[in-house]
Amino acid sequence: MSLVSAGADFRGPLASSGVAEPSLATVGDYIALMKPRVMSLVVFTALVGLAVAPGSLHPVTAFTALLCIAVGAGASGALNMWYDADVDAVMTRTARRPVPMGRVRPGEALAFGLTLGSFAVVVLGLLVNWVASALLAFTIFFYVVIYTIWLKRSTPQNIVIGGAAGAFPPMIGWAAVTGSVSFEPILLFLIIFFWTPPHFWALALYRTEDYARAGIPMLPVVSGDASTRRQILLYTLILVPLGVAPWAFGYTGALYGITAVMMGAVMVALGWQVLLESRPAERASRNLFAFSILYLFLLFAVLLVERGWGGLITRLTA
């Protein structure tokens, strides 16, 4: 059992004397606070946005932009873990995070997140540009305040609206190069935005008890299993044409188009299997959850190879 679920107040035996307990938190705990796996996806999608954007950016500036976006994502993760320590403690998937385990105090996570976020936004503004900086600040605000504090515990549409936070990084990458936002990065935003619900609802289908125990109104908890499966297929049917759209609008070549169509077909097939499946079976949900990660990764990887690779080489040799 974690310290939070056990009702610990993180003050330890010295608390009675009014002295704060010396921390045992390691560097690894602070790295865990930044959600490194989420951060890697954020960096990757931001890199694609940065690479496909027209114009030039010095490689050191591009590295700085990606570093700031990564640190901003880490700040969001730390602030999320600060606020969600109580629900993290009762969910199997999150109970071993540093705050519910008592290795990092909530106040330390808050201070760490605020410091990282402030540095990321200010450094991105000073060294790259203020449009990208403002977008990064808004993304952190959206993830922490709109999603974590407000939506997550109050509506089954939490990850639909909150998914916008995860969709901003390619737009920030684009803005780092151009200093503006246009239709193409909005398209990349929409792909991630409509990818998020089927991805997370597939996970929620086989973690329903976890979310229910934590009091999180995820769609399967509130609307039930069958309704969630219909919604997953519906959002997948919206996602697949959006995935093909960059090719349809002429932004990419045939390789991307073929990849998007083929991967989209598999997504729809898996979404259909999820619809036909019912509890306690969860194989189709697990398959869709795993494949959705590959879907997004491959789409952006092909985009990077086809559109961005030449641009990156040009920038590195400029």
């Binding site: 330890g12 035996p13 010295l14 004397s17 002295v19 307990e21 010396p22 921390s23 045992l24 938190a25 390691t26 560097v27 602070y30």
Partner: peptide, 21 residues
């Protein structure tokens, strides 16, 4: 941890954690 008149005495684990941070 022990507390004496001179303040908190850190354990070895706490010293290592503080040093790494």
């Amino acid at each position: 941890e022990q507390r004496d008149d001179e303040g908190i005495v850190l354990t070895e684990a706490q010293k290592r954690a503080r040093r790494s941070r």
